[in-house]
Design a protein around this nucleic acid. Structure first.
Lengths: 159, 159
DNA sequence: TGCTTGCTTGGAGTGCACTCGAAGGTCATA
DNA sequence: TATGACCTTCGAGTGCACTCCAAGCAAGCA
């Protein structure tokens, strides 16, 4: 992978708009080494997503435009990483990408969309709760079946 | 929908092979009205699947061949309905259709596949457990975000 | 007798979420 | 200076799980 640690000084791009696109304010979690610039391959290693998928996320508007170096290469910030972490969680809930894009748009539109964002998140929360209930139910069915097979196994041993 | 209640006498097909394809033995749950024959549109109503999907399930081997009337129309049994219910549960776990087909094949192959079926089910069980854990985790993130928006809302009220 | 409804078939089409390929630019090291 | 690693773009391709279509048969009804 080689991940050449260039670590240039934040040219002028680190000072992003304080009402930033894709993270809830005051929620940026700096990574242990204190850096705030990551190449796409570093983000690949950190998130488990592919570089293709990261570029695609940006193309469809699921991520705000990522900073570029003077040669045009992407430089992801801690804020971007936080956003990707949230996206990862939302993806696990089965939320369609289109809905996540909608949420990203709301974030980009600024503070006056708080209520709508909250509604969206609360609807998702309800979804997650019912998915958990479904899975519990499925677990019960699975356990029932597994027991049947276990009993059958024991019965055939006794023969 | 019209579901013409023909209710013919089980011509000769109800007496299926006791080592039946797609249900664990002694697990047929008769429906309240005591019937054991359903047209495809009745099954659509009972399962929420489309007729297209039901035919497709049969085509790909996710269901054993369904009985036909003398005119070639499908007649689903209670056993088929039980199987569809299990498939529905497995589908909720995110199990790929190909894996469900594999399980259906094992069922069709008879009793000597019990151990393998059980392994498959236990692997699925582990998956379900970890999905539940993931969803709980996501729930925590969601609650955290929702609280932030709620606080922001209260703060702006106070202004 | 014709019309409508509901069913049959095989094959083609759809939507989603990636996933890949081709052509080309930049940079550090041999 | 050239080799290789890494990046860029846009457009096309993939795999999954359906979903639909066209042509045609059977049964009930005016």
């Amino acid at each position: 992978m080689t991940v050449t640690e260039t670590m240039r000084v934040p040219a002028r791009s680190a000072g992003r708009d304080p009402a930033d696109p894709c993270a809830t304010r005051a929620e940026v979690h700096p990574r242990p080494d204190g850096r705030d610039q990551y190449t796409i391959s570093e983000v690949v290693a950190l998130t488990g997503l592919t570089a293709h998928t990261l570029r695609w996320y940006e193309r469809i508007g699921l991520m705000a435009h990522v900073d570029r170096s003077h040669t045009g290469q992407r430089q992801y910030s801690n804020r971007d990483l936080d956003w990707l972490k949230l996206v990862g969680k939302l993806r696990l809930t089965g939320m369609p990408v289109a809905d996540m894009v909608r949420y990203a748009e709301l974030v980009r539109q600024g503070d006056h969309t708080y209520a709508e964002r909250r509604d969206l998140l609360e609807a998702t929360r309800r979804d997650v709760l019912s998915r958990i209930a479904e899975l519990r139910d499925t677990l019960a069915v699975l356990d029932h079946k597994i027991n049947i097979y276990a009993d059958a196994g024991r019965a055939s041993e006794r023969v």
